[in-house]
Design a protein around this nucleic acid. Sequence first.
DNA 1: TATTGTTATACTCTATAACTATA
DNA 2: TATAGTTATAGAGTATAACAATA
Lengths: 174, 174
Amino acid sequence: MGMTNEGERPPGPTGAAFLLAQLGAHAAELFAERLAELDLTPPQGGLLRLLADSPGRSQRELADDLGMPPSRFVAFADELEERGLIERRRNPVDRRLYAVHLTDEGGKLLAGLRKVGADHERRMTDGLSEQERDQLTGLLRRLADRQGLSPGVHPGFRLMRAERSGRGGGRRKG
Amino acid sequence: MGMTNEGERPPGPTGAAFLLAQLGAHAAELFAERLAELDLTPPQGGLLRLLADSPGRSQRELADDLGMPPSRFVAFADELEERGLIERRRNPVDRRLYAVHLTDEGGKLLAGLRKVGADHERRMTDGLSEQERDQLTGLLRRLADRQGLSPGVHPGFRLMRAERSGRGGGRRKG
DNA sequence: TATTGTTATACTCTATAACTATA
DNA sequence: TATAGTTATAGAGTATAACAATA
């Protein structure tokens, strides 16, 4: 009989689902902190990766992939374009569409982002042997598959603040 | 040598860290949906559990545990008190403090919440054998430990919308 | 008429700081 | 003076809908 603890243990947060939520939030937070060193938010990093994989798509398609309304994508893309990381090119065939591309500088930043990602991966699985890490990854992949999660699509970007900013309000001092 | 895929694979989101973030967000979302059936948000459920474990603490302490400012805790507790789930009792020794307690009805709802939690646990680990589930839980617990995550403390409540509501604005129809 | 991209607007959420009462 | 609880306000974020250009 397995050493499970359903019903014998303090019924609180002790199961795999809770640990997944806790570790997932921690991983996302830590990754966001590392990304901030490159002046990127997770959705911004997501777009760069998306553009590297399939360049030239329309804003609407990209907005859909990132899970944000097209209206929001505009300002989102504006900022990255002003920073010289992405580029809008008119589609000569259908002049309503923009084809969004990564610039050279955007490509460079993407390389840095990938380094950060690899480093993050190491830190998150710290303390596990190589075999255990493979074991974990395999189990997680099976769960993700079973839950119908598309590989590579946003880890909850919708729930994170899209833009970096100082929070909140406050009464004026006078 | 392990079948790891660092550097050989499309460098994108394929590692354990990404899967953790993805599955964690999914677990949190799914759990929130189930909680909504009880008209509870995750932070509200968190408070009920907290009160069951250690009743009678002050609002400030509870707010700290939930990771919210005391000012926000007021309205948060108001709603649960109006619904008859929690109760504020004056501390006769230090009349500045409230001692927050679960009511009988709050206790009943907590029982329902635990059922939902157990069910959620089963759904999230669906497709794994009992042995694999134990294996996974063990690995996750070690990671959580190594990352310094306190057992049982909020899985990212801060990043979730605290109150249920229809989103956003929109121009008025006229 | 339908669709892409864009702007305008209204609305929610929430953090900060002032405030009240107790100590 | 300091602390628990509360209220008031400001401001960010963002979804919805109107709008303009093109098909």
